[in-house]
Write a protein that binds this DNA or RNA. Structure first.
Lengths: 148, 148
DNA sequence: CTTGGTGCAAACGTTTTGCAGTATC
DNA sequence: GATACTGCAAAACGTTTGCACCAAG
């Protein structure tokens, strides 16, 4: 069994156990999400249309919302105001960090858990209970550096 | 001379040296920005209207854009997709980090430069030239913790 | 009188919602 | 046949833009 299949199965179970169905539309959307990272809703919609041209944009949004409610999906909004989506826990042990290239716009992910230390400091110093964090670096990526 | 006055003066000089004017509208917007942190455009607009009811929302946006071009203002977009604005370098030695309370929505700032270490790691490991970073913690703030 | 600046309203791009119709158990 | 679920179109939201008018050197 392929890794993708087992993920689909897990998500299907999550859906059904919450009283929802795995419709053909949701299947295609999940497929696109499994094959890609940090796509925007529009980008997901376009890729979905290639496989099933009758799917509406509203369905994409509703499915993304649903998956987010089920904690299957992560929604992120970067500085451009456009939200991007990723399936949760795609093999990450820790919350990934992001590298946004200011030249080409590419978004890379990085794993690094040095933040745990900082989190502890924050909790002690400010009495703020940390549930989650997000760290983004802006700069210039490797390939853009090499081109200049 | 009040601190606020000297800041206004600096910004005015920046404006004029770039060929722009300090109009009454821009003055009021700057006043609001000086007295508040991380407001949205709409919030700035409402506060501006209290002092000068004829200012338009478009002017607020245009002024914010202008100030950003002049590197006087910082624009940030959090997960809700709404941009928030802050005057730069309001006494911060280092880039501040944010504490977003998931209960009351309050945004607090925190200073901490432990990230420099992580930045160095990123640059070495991924050959990514870091220009800037943003770190946000989501959780529950002190007053919300005490209320429960 | 030329230039930058303004208010207003219309347009924009992303996201949400209302609704009538469809699919599934 | 009740209950999700869907596509479509319209609306909503924050933001930007076009335009005619205004203000200041």
């Amino acid at each position: 069994m392929k890794r993708t299949d087992s993920k689909i199965k897990t998500i299907t179970q999550t859906l059904y156990s919450a009283g929802f169905k795995l419709t053909p539309q949701r299947q295609v959307i999940l497929k696109v999400l499994l094959e890609n990272e940090h796509l925007s809703a529009e980008e997901i919609y376009l890729k979905v249309k290639i496989e099933n041209s009758s799917v509406g944009l509203a369905t994409v949004y509703r499915t993304l919302d649903l998956l987010r409610d089920l904690n299957v999906l992560n929604k992120m909004t970067f500085q451009d105001g456009i939200s991007r989506y990723d399936l949760n826990n795609s093999g990450h042990l820790h919350q990934p960090h992001y590298l946004l290239c200011q030249k080409c716009g590419k978004i890379d992910e990085v794993e690094n858990d040095l933040l745990l230390e900082i989190e502890k400091t924050i909790e002690e110093l400010y009495h703020f209970k940390v549930n989650d964090h997000r760290l983004t670096f802006q700069g210039v990526c490797r390939s853009c550096l090499e081109q200049s």
